[in-house]
Write a protein that binds this DNA or RNA. Structure first.
Lengths: 235, 235
DNA sequence: GCGCACTACGTACGGTGTACGTAACTACGA
DNA sequence: TCGTAGTTACGTACACCGTACGTAGTGCGC
């Protein structure tokens, strides 16, 4: 019988090695590493149970002994890349520390463009997520505020980063699913946008586009969004 | 030959009715309405081209005359529900207007739980999205700021709302894909969380959980996040 | 009224997640 | 020490998915 239980279960609470039976050929870390490699290299849509199993060198259904459902594979992956955080000692300046963490998250998401899509609040308590959360809390020690407020701060910063990077990535990742280049598509979309704005039905949008004729410095936009978020919690 | 072009194309630039040939049996609005109904009632994972075509009463491949790719169906859906916004005249109080719009967005996303997942920045210029954007800009007329800043404000507010509601929905929508109830799962997850916190490895998290023993008022959290975001742009 | 661009749609291909059955294996209880 | 229970391994099969392609039929523009 396969390992699929009828009862709810968190993969982290399930022991990696059961008492009886042959010793497992792979560790959870092995599986997560392979899955991450595939998703990084070929895109999240190319990540299938068959693909992972093939790369591991085992039958497709054998994988289900380790990972009851594909969703659990996602959970393993998110936790695995969360280990890439550098959680060295806080400096004592909580704003600087949170800013640095936000930039780490952004870099992490650029290394693993599938992260924003797979991250789910229900995965929020995986082992590495707990380490990360505790570290954030430590960085926020100098801030005089209730724990609840600090939690909201962390959530806000992560929300800004996730939203921003998801947008950054969305355009780039379209290359994978489209038969034409994203530049071509963007050209067509901008042409349509201009044709609409030129109708005069959107005077303020027209003015906005006229104001910022050059390309927008998205890094600066990101930085401002972060600063504003942190300022909102300043004591 | 099917309608799939090798050239990039925005569906909005493609005329609904071509000159020659039999008159189309459905309008884009018909198709979008059916797709929205399915996604609302059965979840986004149950939305397939076959399903939509069946509900419309036509062959699967006929649908591809109207919608070249499934992604275009998504774009139609997002635009269709964007028409549900009540964009009545601004009050002159930009903070109140933006707050009301944010609440509208939240309600919209609760009516259509698939919205956060399908919304993509690349769809950002559909007809109803343009109407919405122009309306936001009109609400922000009283705010003395550059258009670029106003754009950032709109993006920030929408980011907060999307992040927050996506989290709200994620847990609820799990019911669809899981063989057990979300309450059961949450119970198991919380049990694991407690077991981890009880190890003493996460003292600050422990303190945080001890502080807020009762259930958290998520509506209040949402409201605070919105207020903080708007405050950051106050003149 | 001719021709062509369009609509309609059946079939088929290569993929997906995963339920189920069976065979081999090992650690534990007797 | 020896069953035996529970685990691992994995082939097969099912019900889906998006969509490429080919073939008819239809009606507008010339």
């Amino acid at each position: 019988m396969a390992g699929r239980p009828a009862e709810p279960e968190v993969i982290w609470a399930r022991p990696e090695r059961a008492g009886r039976g042959p010793r497992p050929a792979f560790s959870r870390a092995d599986i997560a590493a392979v899955a991450v490699r595939i998703a990084d290299a070929e895109g999240i849509d190319a990540l299938s149970m068959r693909h992972v199993a093939a790369e591991l060198g085992c039958g497709t259904m054998s994988l289900y002994n380790y990972v009851p459902r594909k969703e659990d594979l996602y959970e393993l992956m998110v936790d695995a890349v969360s280990a890439e955080y550098d959680l060295s000692d806080p400096t004592g300046d909580w704003r600087a520390d949170m800013l640095a963490l936000a930039h780490q998250t952004r870099a992490l998401m650029h290394r693993h463009p599938w992260l924003p899509r797979l991250m789910s609040p229900v995965y929020g308590f995986s082992p590495n997520a707990l380490r990360y959360l505790e570290h954030c809390m430590t960085c926020l020690d100098p801030l005089k505020a209730r724990y609840g407020t600090k939690m909201e701060l962390i959530a806000s910063v992560n929300g800004v980063v996730t939203t921003y990077v998801a947008n950054e990535i969305a355009t780039a990742e379209r290359t994978r699913s489209l038969p034409w280049s994203p530049e071509q598509e963007q050209g067509v979309r901008i042409a349509y946008l201009f044709s609409q704005v030129a109708t005069g039905r959107y005077p303020r949008l027209a003015a906005a586009f006229a104001e910022d004729s050059g390309p927008i410095d998205m890094d600066a936009v990101f930085e401002r969004a972060l600063t504003r978020t942190l300022d909102a919690f300043a004591d």
